[in-house]
Amino acid sequence: MENGMLIKTTDLTKVYPMGGQSITALDKVNLSFAKGEFAGLVGPSGSGKTTLLNILGSLDVPTRGSAEVLGEKIETLTHRKAAELRNHHIGFIFQTFNLLPVYTVYENVEFPLLLLGMAPAARRRAVLAALEWVHLSDRARSRPAQLSGGQCQRVAIARAVVKKPDLVLADEPTANLDAENSHHILHTMADINRDLGTTFLFSTHDDKVISHLRRKITLIDGRVAKDEPGPAAEKRP
């Protein structure tokens, strides 16, 4: 992979069988992302945004073409290697937060570090630091059901960044939030991007998110229709 390049896709194609037919979710997508980008995939529903995020997150594999993430070709990874890639280098943020309801805020954030096998003391420091980033240190012992939607998403951000991944993939992260919470969330992610150098790649059609993007890629029918600087391009750290 070229120097400083985090992601590179080459003629990336994903076809889903649907009954007797097949649906092309991604059609020869060629994109590359450098470390530290704050970029977004925009486009209507069914344009292939989530499919592309899933493949870049090694949750799915391309039908044809190639997706290279941190030097690993996704299409050739075994389940175990894919899990290792996600475990060490990729964080996810979801539209519906997807916190584990039986665990506290602290434990939800701690979970990725348990998978990494981090020592307890280091783990505790990392979790408290992550909660500090998202301003939720005082809610560490709360359960998700006791939090607002905005707080839940901040917990999800803390969980995604606690292991200081190279890449965070955020699928419609503000879809279930009001304007004020969306604003706070986006600022939090922008701060983390700036402070930790973490690459953020969003899937969104929320204008509030788009307004924070420094690079905006428009997908239509699985193809890259436009790849342009985003509204916040001038804020590049």
Partner: peptide
């Protein structure tokens, strides 16, 4: 299933 999907997304292997 959702919980397992999440755990796999967070980097847990299927075996684990």
């Amino acid at each position: 299933h959702g919980e397992f999907g999440l755990r796999l997304a967070l980097g847990e292997s299927k075996d684990r």
